[in-house]
Each structure stands twice: as structure tokens, then as C-alpha cells.
Amino acid sequence: MASTYDVAVVGGGPAGLAAAQSAAKAGARVVLFEKDEAIAHSVRTSGVSWIDSMESLGIPGSLYNPIANYRFVSPSNDVMISGSTPRSCVLDVRATYQHLAFLAAEAGATIMVKSNVINIAKENGAVTGVKASTPAGDMEVKCPLVIDASGFSTSVGRKAGLAGEWRRYGVGAEYECYCDHADSLTWTLMVGQQYSEAGYAWVFPLSKNRVRIGVGIGRPESQADPLGKLHAVLEKRLKPLDALGKIQPVELHYGFIPNEGPRQHSVADGLLMVGDSAGQSNPLVLEGIRYAIEFGRLAGEVGARSLAHNASKESLADYEKAWKARVAAKIASALKVQSRWIGLSDGEWDKEIGILRDMSADEFIDFIKADFTAAKMMKLAFHHPKLAARQLFNMVLK
């Protein structure tokens, strides 16, 4: 069957749902294709984000667990940074994504689940539609604009020749678990060889009895299996798991996230990429949901306006200019810090997390969010001249 829309969105994650909502709200006829059986059927992220970002994006507080304290564990060190007010959060990922889906549906977008985009259509070099396998049969959609929100796979961008495979990326495995008791206000990152050869492990609480325990591995620095590493951490009850009491997994999450900075190009004639497809993620803790929603909405707005110009590359250029002006420099600075972290030995990690000990919670949050403004880094270096803050300052700004 053939259908005509103004915009086809590929991918039902936060970027695609946000794009579908804003484009539909602007008056565009929008269809969104999600390959899984349900929105957020398969959770592929640990859901860490920041309360100020969620508030500015209108995400209800009922959809996340607030975090005030930040703990770091290395082979011979243990640091707690305590805050007076929660600034980070752990999202109920499934509920958050479905909240975004309802907003998109309310705005008028058509959402098709278990619908896999298998190819694209092109005319004179421009993307002009998609072909999808849906529960109702194969479907051809003609449209001036396709928004690639397919995540790590960048399926449309690759088919269109705008993007290649990611060379550097993170792969993570995580169990969502019942546990007897956890500090619901504290998330923990664990570093060192026993946790991850090139990455980190984590304990992110959703409540005092529900936590996400996972391991992330950087590629190509390590070819270790994150699930195998996670099982070892659980079996050995490595710190801080030793204090959680009974741990019983109830869900397994597994996913990939790009880790080499923004795509060189995120727009072309008839095509726009957003979220992980475009490389919109923070390399320090490999989180990007806030960027996905923010830039998804921007993509939908600019995309709807571009329809008057047949979604030409020139009419989509404002999207790329805006999002890169907002975060490209911050992501680049975060990559410099991360490149140093990737190769640290256990002894070096013991010293490294000692750097964090004297930071305030606010200083730490600005740093780990990759909020690397010159003013904030100068302030950090001034307050901690005897620690590594000055080194980080020089490394980030030079």
C-alpha cells in the first residue's frame, strides 16, 4: 500500500517521538515507524539524566527518581560527593518514552509499532520516502522529509550515504533488579579492571528496592563482553553490591551508544538525523536522552518549516547550525577528558577519583554533564589548584 505524508520519522525513541510531536504540532502530517512491538519494548539505556534538563523539557517528576549524592569506587578508593539538593535523576525509561509517545499522538502523529523501515526512496539525490514492513503489510510512504531517529544503527543515514558505521562506541549490559535495600538518593560509578577494562560499572537506583546494575565497555579499546563482566561483578558481589542484600534481576537491558562526537553532517536533501544517529551524546557518562528530546523537538520544528522549500538541505541547515552551536564544543571537550580516562590503570584510577573528593556536588555535576564553559572551568581550577582541576582546565581549553 502507498501513503503520502509530509514527514516520516524512523525510530520510536525519545528523539523520534519528540520530533514527531513537534512536527505534527506545527501542522505537518507525520508518521513514525518503530520496529519493536511497543514503544520502549526493549530498554537500551540506563536512564541517567539531569533534573534541570527534565524540568525544562516538561518531563513530569513522577517519571524519575531524584539523585543528590554521587559515589565513586575504584580498587583502593571510595569517594562520596554529597549534595543538599537532588540535581541528577534516573528515569523510568519505559514510562518516559511512552509519555513522549502520547504527546506525539495527541499532536496528531501516526505511530506504527512493529514496523521496520527496510529501504528508502530517492530521486535526483534527495530522499523522497521510505519502504516499511508493518503488521498491516508492506507500506510505501512518499514524503518530502525523512527524520532518521533510528539510534546507533543510523539506518536511514547509512542507506542514504550520509553516514557510515560508528568506529568508536560504548556497549553496555544492565540488569534492572530487586534488591533488599539501596540508597535511593545515591548513584554509584565503579572503575578499574575488575569492573571494566575500558569503561565503568554502575548502580543507579529507581527506589530503595529497585536498581539498575550494569557494565559499559568502550570499543575498540576493549573487546570484552559487558554481559560476562556484569555477571562476574554480580557473582563476586564487588563493592558496593556487597551492601545491597538480596539482588534479583527482573529485566535485562543491552545497548550501544556512539562515542566519537557529532556526525560531520546531519542534514541532506530530504533527510535529517537526530539523537544517537547524529552523535548527540555526552561522552563522559554516555547519556543523551536530554539531547534527544531537545534536538528532536528542534528537528520537528525546522523540518515542518522546511516543507515549504521541499525539505532542501539549505532549508534544514538551521537545525544543524543550532544543535552544533549548542553542544558540539562541549562534546569535543568531554571527549578529551574521556580519552584520558579510557587508558587509566587501577592505581591511576585510585588517584583520579581522589581528584573528585574535594569537589562540591554542583562543581561535579557541571563537570560530569560536560558543561565545559570557560567560566566554569576557570572557577573549578581556581577552587582546586592543588588537585587535578587545573590539569583538566588546561586539557579542556587548550
Rank of each mutant, 00 (worst) to 15 (best):
A2I: 13
S3R: 09
Y5N: 10
Y5L: 11
D6M: 06
V9Y: 14
P14Y: 11
A18E: 04
A23I: 15
V31I: 15
K35E: 08
I39T: 12
W50R: 09
D52C: 03
G58W: 02
A68E: 04
R71G: 06
N77D: 12
T85G: 07
R87S: 14
V90S: 11
V93D: 01
V93P: 02
H99I: 00
A105I: 04
G108T: 01
V113G: 06
K114N: 02
S115D: 15
N119C: 01
V127H: 02
T128S: 13
G137W: 14
K142T: 14
S155D: 10
S155P: 09
G157R: 12
L162N: 01
E165P: 10
V171D: 08
Y175I: 06
Y175Q: 04
C179M: 03
L185G: 15
Y195N: 10
Y195C: 10
A198Q: 11
S207M: 11
S207V: 14
V211Q: 05
R212G: 09
P220Q: 06
S222C: 11
S222E: 10
E235V: 02
L238C: 01
L238N: 04
P240T: 10
Q248R: 13
H253Q: 13
H253R: 12
F256T: 13
R263V: 01
H265K: 09
H265M: 06
S266P: 07
V267C: 02
M273V: 05
A278D: 00
G279D: 07
P283T: 11
V285F: 11
V285C: 07
A292D: 04
G296D: 03
A308P: 05
H309I: 00
A311S: 10
E314C: 05
E314I: 09
A317P: 14
K324S: 07
A329G: 10
K336C: 12
S339C: 15
W341S: 03
I342Y: 08
D346A: 04
G347E: 14
W349Y: 13
W349I: 09
I353V: 10
I355T: 00
R357Y: 02
A375T: 09
M377P: 01
M377Q: 00
M395W: 01
M395A: 03
